[in-house]
Amino acid sequence: MSAEPGLRSAGRRQAVALSIFLLVQTLGTVFFVGDVIGDLRAEPTSFHFIFEALVTSALVLGILFGAFALRRTIELLRAQEQALDVARGALAEVIDRQFEAWALTPAERDVGLLALKGLDVAEIAGLRGAAQGTVRAQLTRIYAKAGVSGRAQFAAFFVEDLLGAGVPKTAAEAAQ
């Protein structure tokens, strides 16, 4: 929750910086092209003109490549954001289904979710406007329904799901 917006805005800052760089490059090139066209009319065969024309075509190519690179960066950024959203949505769905399987009450679901997000008893009580004793009792009931020993195992239940699905498959793939 805390790391992701930072990641997103860092990516956006990078795209903005690249765009500004591309703009400065285009500005320079357009001025340079204007200068070269002026030279072309004045002295088309001079060494000065030929050299400047070469430099200008390099600048134009640079802009083209820069634009392509920027497009790739922007598309990569979007793909990452989308993948992150999908993963987050999938995890939320898994948690939801599991809570249902454990027959948690709506209040217990809220408390369970907050506990998964790493909030302690005092914080959960503050957020829900409930007494700390109430939250502690709710947590105990959640752990009992889930058949886990405590908060660490409760959190590990979902993480282990993610890891457990990944490890054997990659091992099997490596064996092939």
Partner: peptide, 12 residues
């Protein structure tokens, strides 16, 4: 000239 450059960039 700046508008010209911005226009070139947008059209590209």
């Amino acid at each position: 000239w700046i508008v010209m450059a911005l226009l070139v960039l947008r059209l590209l």
